[in-house]
Every structure is written in C-alpha cells, then in structure tokens.
C-alpha cells in the first residue's frame, strides 16, 4: 500500500519534471533564443499549450502529498517555508505572464508579461534546486552543496528547454525565422557539457558536506544522469537531447525520494481507499486527455492563438 502511494507521488513529480521542464526551461532561455517581438511571441505560443497540461501534474502531486502524506507536508512544506513561498511566487508570476500576455496588443504590455515569464521560470527552477538541496540535506541547506545543487537543477531545466525549443521553434516550410530554433539547438550541446562538469562536482560536494544520508543511491542517480548527458554532449540539436533531458529531469524526483530524509509515513488506509476509489474512474479520461493534448499541439498552430 505504502509503496503504491510513493510510486504514485514520484510518478506525478516525474511527469511534472519532464513535461514542465520543457516550458519552464524554454521560459528561462527565452532572453537568449528570442530577440525580436515575433520570436518572443512564438516562444510563448510554443510554451503555453504545454503549461496547461504540465503544471496539473504538480497540482496533483501537491494534492497527493497533502492527502496521502500529511507528515511530509507538515515537515517539508512548513519546514521550508521560505523556499516554498519562492516557488509559489515564481509559479504565480510565470503563470500570470502566460495567461495575460496575449490579452492586450501593446508592446509595453507584452514586455511586462514576457519579463514575468522569464523571471518566474527562473524563480521556479531555482526554488526546485533549493528544495532538492534541503531534502537531501535533511532540512538544512548544506553550505557547499546547495549552490552546486541549484546550479545543476537549473542546468537540467535549461537543457530540457533548449531541446524543446530546438524542436518547436522551427518555422513551417517556406517561412523564415529559424534563428531561435538554431540558438536553442546550439545551447543543448553547451548545456549538456556544462552538466558533465557540474553534476559530478555537486555529487562530490554532497559527500564532503555529509549532507546526503542515503549517499550511495543518490550518487548512483547522479552518476546515471551524468552518463546519460555524456551520450549527447557531443551533438547539438533536438533529436537526442529530447530523451536525454527527459531522463535527466525524471531522475530529480527519484533522487529526492531515495536520498531525501523524509519519513514516508502514508496516511491511514481508509484515506488511501477514498482517494483511489474516487480517482480511478477518472484515470482513463486523464490519460486520453493528456495524450490527445500533446499530440494536438505538435501540429502547426493556427495563426491566432489564445495565449500569443
């Protein structure tokens, strides 16, 4: 029973990391890949359909944590109050930017909300880095390990965003404007190589700081991610970096689960039954909806979209 709940939670968080990594990472990268108003518009129109489908994974994970792991919620969320406030603030600012950007056709309006998307995306990624560091450090933020962990997480988000951008910012046949996609494609190689350096150093720092109690599994995950990045560090472009960045992002919640010093006391069985019985009928609907949404937004968008 306990295992089912843990797998559910890690699964939801992995889904969030992989899918939201795309739109959050692209948001972080957008000052680099999008220089003109038109390019910025396209960044938002690439990210917006994704965020509708991706952040629900986190909302669900928060709900499941609250419902099935009330202790974790008390310990981790209330214990790391400022980190979660930063996360929430970044999330809000970023979402507000995505929701509001397309509503008024004025350059200044776009500038405000584009800035919100960039700043919010960075805040979210950095906050996740801090949360991971705190989880691995058993509540405290280890002095040496924390900045490295934050940097590593930010790098993985960026890599995911670059891989996504390299694929989705390509213009339709016959149009010009491939600069954004090319910039993103070039970035994948640089970011993957940077990851090769930062990840092992971060792992070593974790060891030195004595932060990570479950050191062996944590190191194993870090080594696996490094190896995955090594595979694609030589090439640029979307093809290979899509799966490798996805694998790297998915490893973050796994790392938190194996290396985190959290007592995974699950709520009592009746609460589990209630949640299971009430959600089971919806699961096929959810699966169909998610697959359908992601398939649909792969095709070229019509000229006018809701978000941009």
């Amino acid at each position: 029973m306990e295992l089912v709940a843990v797998v559910l939670l890690v699964g939801l968080l992995a889904g969030y990391s992989v899918l939201a990594g795309c739109d959050i990472g692209l948001g972080m990268l957008s000052p680099y890949v999008a220089r003109t108003p038109e390019e910025r518009r396209r960044v938002v129109s690439a990210a917006a359909p994704y965020f509708l489908g991706s952040e629900v994974w986190l909302v669900a994970a928060v709900g499941v944590t609250a419902g099935l792991f009330p202790q974790i919620e008390g310990e981790v969320v209330a214990g790391q109050w400022p980190l979660f406030v930063l996360l929430l603030a970044g999330w809000l600012v970023r979402d507000a930017g995505l929701w509001l950007r397309g509503r008024v056709a004025a350059a200044a309006w776009h500038a405000v909300w584009d800035t919100a998307v960039v700043a919010g995306s960075w805040a979210v990624a950095l906050a996740w880095g801090l949360v991971l560091a705190a989880l691995l450090g058993g509540g405290a933020l280890p002095l040496l390990f924390t900045p490295l962990c934050v940097a590593a997480v930010a790098l993985l988000f960026l890599l995911r965003g670059a891989a996504f951008g390299a694929e989705r910012l390509v213009p339709v046949a016959g149009r010009t404007g491939a600069e954004s996609a090319e910039a993103a494609a070039r970035a994948t190689r640089v970011l993957a190589r940077a990851g090769l350096v930062v990840l092992p150093v971060a792992a070593a720092a974790a060891w030195l700081d004595g932060g990570v109690r479950a050191g062996a599994p944590a190191l194993a995950v870090a080594a696996a991610v490094t190896a995955v990045l090594a595979v694609t560090a030589g090439v640029s472009g979307p093809r290979w970096s899509r799966p490798t960045s996805a694998a790297a992002m998915a490893s973050l919640p796994v790392l938190a689960a194996v290396g985190g010093q959290v007592s995974a006391a699950v709520a009592d069985p009746r609460s589990l039954v209630l949640v299971a019985v009430a959600t089971a009928p919806m699961v096929p609907v959810l699966a169909v909806g998610q697959v359908w949404l992601y398939r649909m937004v792969r095709r070229p968008a019509p000229e006018s979209g809701f978000f941009a």
Partner: peptide, 13 residues
C-alpha cells in the same frame, strides 16, 4: 486533505 487530493487528481487535472 483526502478530498482535496481527489479534487486535484480527479477534477482539476
């Protein structure tokens, strides 16, 4: 929190 968990997974998702 259990009903709120259901809300997020079954409804909002």
């Amino acid at each position: 929190s259990a009903p709120l968990a259901v809300e997020t997974v079954a409804a909002f998702f």
